[in-house]
Nucleic acid binder design. Sequence first.
RNA 1: GCCCGAGUGGCGGAAUGGCAGACGCGACGGACUCAAAAUCCGUUGUCCGCAAGGGCGUGUGGGUUCGACUCCCACCUCGGGCACCA
Length: 945
Amino acid sequence: MSDPRSKIPRFRYTASMANSIETQWQEYWDEHGTFEAPNTAGPLADPAKVAERKKLFVLDMFPYPSGAGLHVGHPLGYIATDVFARYKRMTGYNVLHAFGYDSFGLPAEQHAIATGVHPRVNTESNCNIMRRQLRRLGLGHDARRSVSTTDEEYYRWTQWIFLQIFNSWYDESQDRARPISELVAEFETGARDAGGKAWNELNKIERQELLGTFRLAYLAEAPVNWCPGLGTTLANEEVTNDGRSDIGNYPVFKRTMRQWTLRITTYAERLLHDLDRLEWPEPIKIMQRNWIGRSEGARVRFASNAGPIEVFTTRPDTLFGATFMVLSPEHPLVAALTSADQKRAVDEYCVSAASIKDIDRQDDSRPKTGVFSGTHATNPVTGSQIPIWIADYVLMGYGTGAIMAVPSGDQRDFDFARKYDLPIIATQLPSTEWFESHGVAESANCDSWPSAFIGEGTYINSDNESLMLNGDRTMAEAILVTNLWLEEHDLGQAAITYKLRDWLFSRQRYWGEPFPIVYDDDNQPVALPASALPVTLPELADFKPQALEPNDNVSAPIPPLARASEWANVSLDLGDGIRSYRREVNVMPQWAGSCWYELRYLDPTNTERFVDPEVERYWMGPQTPGDTGGVDLYVGGVEHAVLHLLYSRFWHKVLFDLGHVSSEEPFHRLFNQGYVMAYAFRDARGQTVPAIDVIQVGEKFSYNDEPVTREYGRMGKSLKNGIAPDEMYDEFGADTFRLYEMSTGPLEASRPWNTRDVVGMQRFLQRVWRNLVDENSNELHVSDTGTPVELRRELHRTIQGVGADMEHLRFNTAIAKLIELNNALTQHVNAHGSTPREVAISLVQMLSPLCPHMAEELWSRLGHIESITYQPFPHIDQAMLVRDTIEIPVQVNGKVRARLTVSLNVTDDELRNLALAEPKVLQALAGSKPKNVVIVPKRLVNVVL
RNA sequence: GCCCGAGUGGCGGAAUGGCAGACGCGACGGACUCAAAAUCCGUUGUCCGCAAGGGCGUGUGGGUUCGACUCCCACCUCGGGCACCA
């Protein structure tokens, strides 16, 4: 009696009713395989179900199964793709929507090191937690197609694809990758020159090394963050701002190691060009273009006492102004070019440069530093001796790692020249305006210019016996002339350079895909045959690395797999009898598994191939001639704008070139959803701490009694600020939670998390329920007595609007329109006691993509036996959209002063006369004539005074 | 620092060259109730005004246009990425 809830009607749509409805329908969908998408071939084939339906492949960026489980930011994209997929099923598509886990990665390994629990155990438990959380959301995934990158049957194919990459080379003449065997054949027949020698004169090692310079996967020296105190290499994220380890606070050293590298740069041009063929947001394309960073210019060789130094410049036309050279501290010629008296200074400089993070080295606002090598090079056009400097503003990873410095034409070189008092020679005379705007006299010597001049200008001081640039000419002409001269004199040639670097593909970790590679007695890499796959990870007794003296920067880093010595040293027969080999002990980066997972969803159980070609062609093949093919809709965060999306495109293109897939691109249409944002906290070393454990006292925040600073950012594992969705299910139900996530803004926009607002969507669903079902009797109150015309008009306007919004992923405005319809319906029900059947049916159909459990329940109560999943989306009655009158705003000087209600076929003259007769307009005119009357036919009148 | 976005009521947002603030949250008022909750109805950008009405208003400053939240330029703030977090 005293229970306050006793007055709540017994059959109200509450969280507990929602929960029981949701559980019941989730079981129904599982039992009936409702979301199983038929293939055209193989074990998942069901030709009758494919029938004449058009296909649609909808894909989410799959998550890392974090130990913290799902946070409320994850489902934003997952719900959106589910709503879209469900909408498309209702409009006749055969929709493939599957879900998997990107389950290799750092946190599981760190967890294993800390607890001794095998990463697989931890990872599987995390996957199960997330699977359960996602199931509660009612996502319509084809469960048969779920894959984890850590499944042996998955990563055997990741390894297989790596072998394809290793066993291929890029044929520039055909502009595609080809099997390495075809290159060997060209060498054997002599069709291709084998580096000056005949192929059959090369020994085995020389042959392997030659092929290594062609293979798309090759070994190269590359820097790592080595932390002896932990005995492991570290990810950039694990290194603090002051160059120490996040865990343990030990010193971290930059060391180079021999590591696998993928020749993605061979695809730079195609990765750039094919962006034009994709339906991606323009900003993402711009980011990828900038990342690839194509520049045209020239390679120029400067003579020095250590041989020619090659530079890349985008401005060969300014060569006459090159007054010094700068080499990156990592440049291989640094030692050879350093004079005895400068050796100490150069060594010290190089050591200190190594301790600066790359991201800081690219900071243009940082004061320039550098050191003179003590030697000179020859400017190829002037013949003069110019000093060679070493400076960290030149990066080894771009161009050749050396530059010619033209202080008059490049701001960085200008700053450097000023600081170290190096000569500045102008090669172009700026315009009068330039001098005026920079506050210097035109007669001023360029030593007194305030900055470098970059642009078109009259060429000066630019001639020698055989090259003459002086005078008025365009930069393009000057560049062309210079490039020709360089080529004639064998001093350089026109060249294109990309910022894009080859992809460092080795990690010194345990929890990743082992490479299908062994090394022979000659230390040459040998690919294992496909029959040897998968190369499974060995068991380790202890995941803790062997820690060393924290300052021991001499001992070689030992990857975890090297400790599994029985696994690492094997005897195999690879075609020439049983021999002993040692395995590659690095593993692949987490990117590897995410580079091709969409293909495995297509054919997850195939044991013969990574995907059946016919199945791939059906789901991903080009739809029209010239189309790239690929996933029809790929939804994920913009944080993957460059790396993941570039790496997958690269792998996909290799597979295309080798004939394994029919699509040229993996993701035809991309949509970036925004982030769910939340506060995050950072300690004094710049590392994030778990937000949930931070304590607020007044305006201050602390974690473990240490002060922390607050910031605002994307909810997720990096910022350790996730909020679990489970309490949303308990408090409101999954349908309300889905609706809330979709209603808080446009899908592409980031939004703060605000639990307080969720109740609005619960009230909406309660009103919908109440409009169809009596809360006291649980009886349906739907009538067959017909619909008033105004309500019917509103219904059809809603159908039109919601359909258009769903097509364009505008779920927030679709929901607003449904609320408006339901509010109109509430008024009708209040007046007449029941909902007209046609409105009930259409409303439930329109709601079903967004809140499918409630829609299924109401659909079944409306007397239907089949699931609503494949029911058609309601059709628009065009007659209901036609209005008799329209309202026209009347502006005076652009401000609305009156409104006219006029007939549909109103003429411009009628509008003008009506507008000029409006009292407000007459008042504003005050007797004078309007200067102008702008009429937008059937839209608006603007009276200009 | 460089590259890419975003800034609109107390809050989330709507409107993408033509009626600024749809829809939701919150707040306020009313009905029902012994009372509260729930529900239903109404008000709610801001300033001046008793009101009628009027002024101002989309981060800041400029510009284009009959008309700008929307397009252009500069600046400020916040977010994403910067190659070993993925």
